[in-house]
Design a protein around this nucleic acid. Structure first.
Lengths: 276, 276
DNA sequence: ACCTGAACACCGTTCAAGT
DNA sequence: ACCTGAACACCGTTCAAGT
């Protein structure tokens, strides 16, 4: 039914890298060194590779967030000098590109099944959303980045395949994929920005919503009749509901344009579908 | 027809603040000081206010971008020590809140006219987009911020008024405003990130699009049939076209939900409108 | 070839001390 | 009351020097 993007397990990278006991991995079993061969103080150091750097960076991101992910902090975790990192990644920005690409592995894009188009598009978007919610601050990394890494390309191919199976013409499929992923990213960003962890974050968000509700209700009704009237709906939508609502709107919009010709669709002014 | 948000001129704040000739404003005319009253080396200094700080910050943003807008750079422009700023703004983040709110003054939200709903929603979004494109990196500031400042509240009130005039039920109006502004912000962000200034930025973007087109075309057609097929549409959409397409999609989606009841709309699975 | 230390040119924020 | 200098605890990136 639903295919993992590379056929392997959903999370092929090692997440245990933040532990402090590295460097003895090469030995298959734990044998004490012979006493006449006195141990170097830093035994067989596992060499620095781009993979280790990226995986460790993701670990810091998950545990402490984007602001904690500095080149110096990362080097410390890897027990190197921070300048050494530049031999393998070139840039902090490039590093974030790589981190983003590696987590895209977790996203599942369904193989098209006839008659289930809308539902499958939703499944894809929900999977993408789950990825964002599973990795702290990842939405902040993704929001101004185009996923052109290897996993990004595979995801894009599968996404185009799914979107076109619903009858979207070329231009609408090409842009629709962008629009959907932008939507999911932006929604995840907004959710995580006012809900930092998962600890008491839900409560914190609730307190803020209550305060905002009180504030909106307290506005002068002559100048702000709509905000006073809508104080409830504006503040009561939780993240899940917002997400599903937005998904519904965009998918309906895509389907409304599905049959039309590409070229005159944009130039003509209105022509929305009938109101239900 | 179209009302400016506060009835005044569209840009009520002074933009000439980056000039280096401040401090003699208090004198109505230019009179040389009497020779026995020897001039202090720094004559009547104009006092630091939150307004001056915010306006100057916007000037730096426009001219040099968000990364150049540091507290130290800002203090230098204002001829103060950087620590002095904290007496008036508390925070760099709070400063950015204030900058964002001040430019919201430029956005025009139309007074509803019967029969022109879709077109008026587009006008509002285009006005918002113009604001973003007029101020370098403003989209980066806006993307993770909820506009709760005075100008933000006024804009929200007017937006809710317009959206409800089209028959959207409360929840859809409340969320629709969010969705539209998120869309405009994200699209402006993407445009400005690959198109830094306006100088040769369009050419730079064109070169990138050509490279990407060549790359997509060169992919193995057996693994990436859709990307190879869609190389044209994916890379040929310019920013204006993307924007109008997305607007069309979202508005169509909003109208599709306009007549439905709020409560079971989200829970029910599919039920999209007929395909044209 | 790979890694390191040290240096460069910056940051945001705080706070005791001055006027 | 408002402003300042100096300090604190950081940044990303470069580069000559080492092994």
């Amino acid at each position: 039914m639903v295919a993992s993007r590379n056929g392997g397990p959903p999370m092929p990278y090692d997440e245990n890298h933040v532990s402090r006991s590295e460097g003895r991995r090469r030995m298959p079993e734990e044998i004490p060194p012979p006493p006449w061969r006195r141990p170097k103080k830093a035994p067989p150091r596992v060499p620095l590779t781009q993979d280790r750097i990226v995986v460790t960076a993701l670990g810091i991101l998950d545990a402490e967030g984007l602001d904690a992910l500095s080149m110096r902090r990362l080097a410390q975790e890897l027990k190197t000098g921070h300048a050494s990192l530049y031999a393998h990644v070139g840039n902090r920005d490039e590093l974030l590109d790589l981190v983003f690409d590696i987590v895209l592995t977790e996203v599942e894009v369904p193989e098209p099944e006839p008659g289930r188009w809308a539902e499958q598009v939703k499944e894809m978007c929900r999977s993408l959303r789950r990825m964002f919610l599973a990795h702290r601050d990842l939405a902040r990394i993704a929001i101004d980045r185009v996923p052109l890494g290897p996993n990004g390309m595979v995801g894009m191919e599968r996404t185009m395949n799914l979107l076109r199976s619903g009858g979207l013409h070329d231009e609408l499929a090409a842009y629709g994929g962008d629009l959907l992923s932008t939507f999911v990213t932006a929604e995840a960003l907004e959710q995580s920005s006012r809900n930092p962890g998962t600890e008491q974050g839900r409560e914190q968000a609730g307190v803020f919503a209550d305060q905002l509700h009180g504030y909106l209700k307290s506005l002068p009704a002559t100048s702000f009749p709509n905000l006073v009237h809508l104080a409830g709906p504006i503040t009561s939508l939780d993240s899940d509901r917002r997400f599903e609502l937005g998904l519904e709107i965009i998918i309906a919009g895509l389907l409304a344009g599905a049959g039309e010709a590409a070229d005159d669709q944009v130039r003509t002014a209105g022509s929305p579908p009938a109101e239900s």
